[in-house]
């Protein structure tokens, strides 16, 4: 459906998007690479000089860095596990006949629309605070000592908050996919003698695989860069217990003004994301083909 003329026009129309995205990707990234080889501190601009791989050596031997990588991965894996398992269960529940299904749906998806800073602050102060929080009050009501979430299990607290935000997303997508399952397929399986668990295992789960792939992809993009929730609740602490790579780079750059070190960290984050993205893109590439 194309002629010479229309193909030329098409290239012209695509160009602005491509050029802008290319600039947005390449120019800052190149600068980051450049800075990462420099001694460059905003407080001492006069000492700016080329120092080769020193920043990387410094960054890669810093124990905080390994803690940050581990924490980054724990957040991604933890939240993915909670949201996908919880999302499947919730989707199965919401797919059942019930009264007021539409309203329940609205209740379930609501957390997704809450901005990260609000949800972090609400959880931090009104739920997880060991003195005034609702969870502490509940624990006291049943005779337990209140748990100081952010001081003793900061990473877990962050995971809970982030999972609360993303569970609705997973549920909504899995529910939509579930509702597109052909009822006749389920009935055929039932006639073939498949019980509820076998039907779930061999009919429902394979049908959901595409949706699950998509949920993993999208959530991973966002979860690798969790930032506001950490900034607002724990500030990365205590120590580096809840610092992920995004937060570590931010702290290096905008709190310690160490542009060189932060840039090296940023490049490491990009490499890490690319490793993850490589596998994810192959996954979604296949999924979207179908």
């Amino acid at each position: 459906m194309s002629t010479q003329h229309s193909r030329a026009a098409a290239r012209l129309l695509v160009a602005p998007s491509v050029v802008l995205l290319f600039l947005w990707m390449i120019v800052p990234l190149a600068l980051t690479v450049w800075f990462s080889f420099e001694r460059f501190n905003l407080l001492m601009p006069a000492t700016r000089e080329w120092i080769g791989l020193t920043n990387y050596r410094f960054f890669l031997t810093d124990p905080a860095f390994f803690a940050a990588i581990l924490n980054t991965l724990l957040i991604v894996v933890g939240v993915l596990a909670i949201t996908i398992v919880g999302g499947i269960l919730l989707a199965l529940l919401l797919d059942r006949p019930m009264f007021g299904q539409g309203i329940v749906r609205l209740l379930v998806i609501a957390p997704f629309f809450v901005m990260p800073t609000v949800s972090a602050l609400v959880w931090k102060n009104m739920f997880m605070n060991p003195v005034n929080g609702l969870l502490a009050w509940l624990q006291k009501a049943v005779g337990m000592a209140p748990h100081d979430w952010l001081a003793t299990t900061p990473l877990f607290a962050v995971i809970v908050i982030v999972a609360w935000q993303w569970l609705p997303f997973a549920t909504l997508i899995l529910l939509t996919a579930l509702q597109s399952l052909d009822e006749e397929q389920r009935e055929a399986a039932e006639l073939d003698g498949a019980g509820a668990i076998a039907r779930f295992r061999f009919i429902v789960l394979p049908h959901l695989s595409r949706a699950i792939t998509v949920v993993i992809l999208i959530q991973t993009i966002f979860l690798l860069s969790v930032f506001a929730e950490i900034l607002v609740t724990t500030n990365g602490g205590p120590g580096t217990d809840s610092t992920n790579i995004a937060f570590l780079v931010y702290a290096q750059a905008l709190l310690q003004f160490d542009v060189g070190g932060a840039s090296a960290g940023g490049i490491v984050a990009v490499v890490l994301a690319n490793i993850v993205a490589f596998f994810l893109m192959r996954m979604i590439g296949r999924t979207l083909e179908g």
Binding site: L224, S225, V249, A253, A269, L272
Partner: peptide, 13 residues
């Protein structure tokens, strides 16, 4: 894939 780039990678510049 440009969405995959972590924002901290370009925060400094």
């Amino acid at each position: 894939s440009t969405k995959m780039m972590p924002p901290v990678g370009v925060l400094v510049p």
